[in-house]
């Protein structure tokens, strides 16, 4: 009766990255003012975190690697079939739809860092209306993405997937029902 009751899903780098990005997105969207130094530095920190995560996607643990969550029609079909059956494999990491969201968010962070940097560092672009608009729309899109992500997590955990998602992102381990 010594079977393990849980399995490792997310390594510490993935988890620290996830919560760092979550905190920065929350802070920079709701708490800090654009133009404040802290907003700028949070933004650069988020950019650096994404770069590190991309690197980790090549050398990290099993579920951290990009190769573990490719996006393809076949994988999306398979994933939808698993959702229909209300059973996701207990050891699964990122699903292909989640993978699309990940790349979209990385792209938005990159866009935010670029437009923010240009606005602050290139004198001729300081106050530039187009840059501010692109920055604002990207920020709204990122926040919307975060809301969709959170909603999807709870829908997947309790309704469609019936698989623990929140705990593994905190402790790294998923408890297995037997």
């Amino acid at each position: 009766m010594n079977r393990p009751a849980s399995i490792v899903i997310w390594d510490p780098v993935v988890r620290i990255f996830h919560w760092t990005l979550a905190a920065i997105v929350l802070a920079n969207y709701w708490l800090t003012d654009p133009g404040e130094d802290i907003h700028t530095w949070f933004g650069y920190a988020a950019g650096a975190a994404v770069l590190l995560r991309v690197g980790w996607g090549f050398v990290g643990g099993r579920h951290a690697r990009f190769a573990d969550f490719p996006i393809s029609r076949a994988r999306i079909r398979e994933h939808v079939a698993e959702l229909r059956a209300r059973s996701l494999p207990a050891e699964s990491g990122h699903n292909p739809l989640g993978a699309i969201m990940i790349y979209l968010m990385f792209l938005l962070v990159f866009l935010l860092v670029c437009t923010g940097w240009l606005h602050e560092e290139i004198d001729a672009l300081y106050g530039n209306d187009l840059l501010q608009r692109v920055h604002a729309y990207a920020a709204h899109a990122l926040w919307a993405g975060a809301l969709v992500h959170v909603a999807a997590v709870f829908i997947m955990q309790y309704l469609l997937g019936r698989v623990e998602l929140v705990r593994p992102m905190i402790t790294g381990r998923r408890r297995i029902r037997r």
Binding site: G35, D123, Y126, D129
Partner: peptide, 25 residues
């Protein structure tokens, strides 16, 4: 003045440089 705006909070807002060449909003 780089950019002059009328804000939602009823302000005249400028982005640019003051007389001491400090970058200011």
């Amino acid at each position: 003045i780089n950019e002059f705006k009328v804000t939602d909070g009823s302000c005249y807002e400028i982005y640019g440089f003051d007389a001491d060449d400090t970058k200011v909003e």
